[in-house]
Design a protein around this nucleic acid. Structure first.
Lengths: 204, 204
DNA sequence: GGCCATCCGTAATGCCAGTTACGGATTCGG
DNA sequence: CCGAATCCGTAACTGGCATTACGGATGGCC
C-alpha cells in the first residue's frame, strides 16, 4: 500500500473514530468499537498507531489541522483585520463548541496520562492563538485597536468570545450554541474588546 | 450508629475520596482505592451510597456546600456590594480553579451517564450564581452599576473573572493560579465590568 | 506464477474494576 | 448479658477492555 492510499485509509479510520467518540464518549470509544466502525482490524490499528493513546493523538492533530484550515480560509476572504476578525469570530466559536472538539477535550480530561492535554496545547499554539493574534496586531498597526500586550489582548478577546462556554460544553451542561447565537456573541465580544482597549484603565 | 456519628464517619470517607480523586484522577479513584484510603469496607460504601455514582454525587454536593459557605462567609464581612464583590472575586476564582473542583469537573467530563454534570449544574444554581447576582443587583440599586439583564451581567462578570481558566484547568493545560494572580485578575475583571456597564453599546 | 508482507475478521490472553458475599469484630438496643 | 444489625478486611464473581495472536484473503514485487 503506497503512502497516498494509506493516508486515505487512515483518514477513513480516523473519521470513523470521531463518529464513535462523539456517539459513545471516551469510555465507549474502545479500540474494538473503532475497529468495527472503520472495518479495520485491531492489528492494523496497533501497527499504525502504536496504541490507543497514539490513535487519539492523531485524532487531536487531525482536528487541529481542520480547525486551522477553516480559520485560514475564512480569514483569507477578508482584507482589513477587524473585518476578518468579525468574520472569523463566529466560526471560531462554533469550532470551539463543536461536538468533535468537545469529545476530544473530554477525552483529554479523562486521560490519566496527560498526553492528550499536551497534544491539545501544542495544537492550540499552532492554530487559534497565532492567527487571531496576527489579526489583532494588524489592527493595532492600522490604529484601529490599542493594547500594550498582544498576549493579553488575545486572552481578553477569547474570554469575551468564548468565556466559559467550552467548559460548560465539556462538562456537559449545555448544548452547542446555534449559528445566530455565535454571531451575536462574537459581535458583542468585538465591541467590548474595542471599548476596553480604548480606556487605559482597562486596556490589555 | 446514630445520625451524628454516621455524619462524621461519612465526612471522613468523603474527605478520603477527595484525596484519592485529586491524587489519582477519576480513573484511579476506584471504589477499592477509596475504601482503602478511608479504612472502610466496600460493603459499607455500597450500603451508604448505593453505587460509585452515588458516592461521587455526594462528593459534588459536599464541595458545593463548602464553596457556598466560603463565599457567604466572605460576603458577610463586607457591607457595600461592590466592596463585597471585590473581596469575593479572588476567593471565587481560587475555588473554581482549586484541585478539588478541577478533579470533580474532570470526573463529570469522564462520566458517561451525565449524572455528575447534572449534579454540578444543580449545585451551581444554588451556589455561585445567586450570590454574585445578588451583589450585582444591590450595586445597581445603589446606582453603582448599570445593566439591563442581571443574568447577562453575571455571565459577563464570570467571563471576565474566570474566562477559560476552568476549561484549561480541567483539560490539564495549566496549574492553579496563585493568590496574587487571582487578586489582580479579579480586580481587572471588576474594572472592566464597570467600564462595559457604563456604555450602552456594551452594557449587558 | 510464486513468495512475502500486510490487512481483515475473529479469537485468545491477562488484567482490572464494579459489585456482591463472607467470617469475625464491634456496636446498639432491650 | 444476649441477639441482631452493621462495619471492617478480604475474597470471589463477572464482564469488559487493551493488547496480542492466528488463519485466510489481498496486493505488491520479482
Amino acid at each position: 500500500m503506497d503512502d497516498e492510499r494509506r493516508g486515505r485509509r487512515q483518514e477513513q479510520i480516523e473519521l470513523a473514530a470521531y463518529r464513535v467518540l462523539e456517539r459513545k464518549g471516551f469510555a465507549g470509544a474502545t479500540v474494538q468499537a473503532i475497529a468495527r466502525e472503520a472495518r479495520a482490524s485491531n492489528e492494523t490499528l496497533y501497527n499504525w498507531y502504536g496504541d490507543k493513546t497514539g490513535l487519539f493523538h492523531s485524532l487531536v492533530a487531525r482536528n487541529a489541522q481542520a480547525v486551522r484550515e477553516a480559520l485560514q480560509t475564512r480569514i483569507a476572504l477578508q482584507a482589513p483585520p477587524l473585518e476578518a476578525l468579525a468574520a472569523v469570530g463566529p466560526d471560531l466559536l462554533a469550532l470551539l463548541t463543536h461536538p468533535r472538539a468537545v469529545a476530544l477535550n473530554r477525552a483529554a480530561a479523562a486521560d490519566p496520562g496527560g498526553e492528550l492535554a499536551q497534544a491539545i496545547a501544542q495544537a492550540g499554539r499552532q492554530t487559534v492563538g497565532p492567527l487571531i493574534a496576527q489579526l489583532l496586531l494588524e489592527a493595532r498597526n492600522r490604529g484601529e485597536l490599542d493594547f500594550d500586550d498582544a498576549e493579553a489582548a488575545l486572552a481578553l478577546y477569547l474570554d469575551l468570545l468564548a468565556g466559559d462556554l467550552q467548559h460548560r460544553r465539556v462538562i456537559g451542561l449545555i448544548p452547542a450554541p446555534g449559528a445566530q447565537s455565535c454571531r451575536s456573541r462574537a459581535t458583542l465580544a468585538l465591541a467590548r474588546l474595542h471599548a476596553l482597549c480604548a480606556d487605559p484603565a482597562t486596556r490589555p
